[in-house]
């Protein structure tokens, strides 16, 4: 039973991350590899504020998305002029810089050792220290993110984002200052990812720089593309598949590290095969 709640918590966290990635990459066609960076920023904000300043996780759940959003706003604004491949390269740069800072700013991040002992959330007199109770908070946050994602997709804003994915130059002709749209969705996506990061840090009670690498971002790509880009439901389906796979592998009897590598192999190959044979993913609505 405990195990099922554990899976549900992981699913909620990756569901949030995949939804955020989908808004930016699937909805807007903006290829970013900084997903893991904002996820990591959320996790590190939680770790630092909770262990060094004694903040409660509930307060951090409010502040971390704002901090990540602010950073994303500044980063996104300075990347506004880059298009396509170059935007991707710039976000890759940002991810590497985040990683280096996490490894080296030892006063705050403890460097490569990471930060341990992150507390569990405490709410209305209860500590959510069991998977059974933590899962309630995780699913609650997931529902918020799902709701907001759906509202965004159905708003005029969401429609304009889709049009940016289809033909940004043509959309500009019709009076859209597309860079503002891209900046805004980049910021929103970062804020969501940070929520996932806070949940992760508080659940695992430990963060270190190796959790937030390029591979983690590529995993998010695979989730979004597998489910079908541009669809919120697709992101959730993709997250479901790629969270379950290593658990199944472990269940069959592969050691944890090997199962991790097998998953990495699977999502790497998935990206290749999907793009070749099924670029619209499982839901099959849009392609990049």
């Amino acid at each position: 039973m405990e195990y099922i709640f554990h899976i549900l918590i992981l699913l909620s966290i990756y569901g949030i991350l995949a939804l955020a990635q989908n808004l930016v990459m699937g909805g807007t066609g903006l290829l970013t590899i900084a997903g893991a960076a904002f996820y990591g920023i959320g996790a590190y904000v939680a770790a630092i504020l909770a262990t060094k300043f004694g903040w409660s996780i509930m307060a951090i759940l409010l502040i971390a998305p704002i901090i990540a959003g602010l950073i994303a706003f500044l980063v996104g604004a300075s990347f506004a002029r880059f298009r396509d491949d170059y935007f991707m390269l710039a976000t890759l740069g940002f991810l590497m810089i985040f990683n280096t800072v996490a490894k080296n700013w030892e006063t705050f991040t403890n460097g490569s050792f990471g930060i341990a002992g992150i507390p569990k959330p405490y709410i209305l007199g209860f500590t959510l220290d069991m998977p059974m109770t933590f899962v309630v908070l995780a699913i609650f946050i997931l529902i918020i993110v799902v709701t907001v994602s759906y509202l965004i997709s159905r708003s005029s804003f969401g429609r304009a984002l889709n049009a940016i994915r289809e033909d940004e130059d043509a959309l500009q002709i019709f009076g859209y200052q597309t860079s503002r749209y891209k900046l805004m969705i980049f910021t929103i996506g970062a804020a969501f990812s940070a929520l996932g990061g806070v949940l992760f840090a508080s659940y695992i009670t430990f963060v270190d720089p190796n959790l937030f690498t390029v591979n983690e971002s590529i995993l998010l790509w695979a989730m979004v593309i597998l489910g079908g880009i541009g669809r919120n439901r697709g992101a959730l389906i993709g997250a479901l598949f790629l969270v379950i796979i290593p658990e199944i592998l472990r269940f069959i009897g592969f050691p944890t590290e090997f199962a991790g590598l097998m998953r990495q192999c699977i999502y790497g190959l998935l990206l290749v095969l999907l793009m070749l044979y099924q670029p619209r993913g499982i839901l099959g609505t849009y392609k990049l």
Partner: peptide
């Protein structure tokens, strides 16, 4: 140059609705 993977209706609606991102949201 159309917005290919959008419905015909959305192709028109996107021209009719709000341009400022914050209001559009």
């Amino acid at each position: 140059r159309l917005f290919d993977q959008m419905s015909v209706l959305d192709n028109i609606l996107v021209i009719l609705t709000e341009r400022a991102p914050f209001y559009a949201l």
